[in-house]
């Protein structure tokens, strides 16, 4: 079972908010004594997801939580937007697939950087991406 120990929501609407969000994620990761490499993986993953949110949905919200499961502590990030949604998630999770002009590494790359990855999307309603990085995972 995964327990949520603390909650904090950051609204992302412009580029300055992205920097603020990355700093908040770093603070939380440092607080639970996550190692430097895992911190870097988590912040890079957050950076990819927040860029998607800015590019495709003009912004959204990110919920930052400290979670615990047994002896493990970790950070859970939930990115939610009310953008156009993703019509084909299976395609979006494939390396090299992009509807924008990017490399198409964002979603599949993010999944490789974190321990748990979940994506839900409804066309016309929005997208919710949840990731968890354990402190020593």
């Amino acid at each position: 079972m995964i327990l949520s120990l603390s909650k904090d929501t950051v609204t992302v609407a412009q580029e300055q908010d992205v920097v603020f969000l990355k700093n908040r994620v770093k603070e939380v990761a440092v607080r639970i004594k996550m190692g430097l490499v895992n911190q870097t993986r988590l912040i890079t993953a957050a950076s990819e997801l927040v860029r998607n949110m800015m590019r495709y949905a003009n912004g959204g919200k990110c919920l930052i939580e400290v979670v615990s499961s047994g002896r493990n502590n970790g950070v859970r990030l939930t990115f939610s937007d009310s953008g156009p949604g993703i019509p084909d998630i299976t395609a979006a999770m494939r390396d090299g697939f992009s509807t924008g002009k990017s490399l198409g590494l964002g979603l599949p790359g993010t999944k490789r950087l974190v321990n748990e990855f979940d994506i839900k999307s409804k066309v016309g309603e929005g997208t919710i991406v949840t990731i968890i990085k354990w402190a020593n995972g």
Binding site: T40, R41, P108, G109, R112, L113
Partner: peptide, 14 residues
């Protein structure tokens, strides 16, 4: 380049 950055770049697929 910091070692942690090298690790994430490769895992990311870049």
């Amino acid at each position: 380049m910091q070692p942690a950055v090298a690790i994430t770049l490769i895992e990311l697929g870049l």
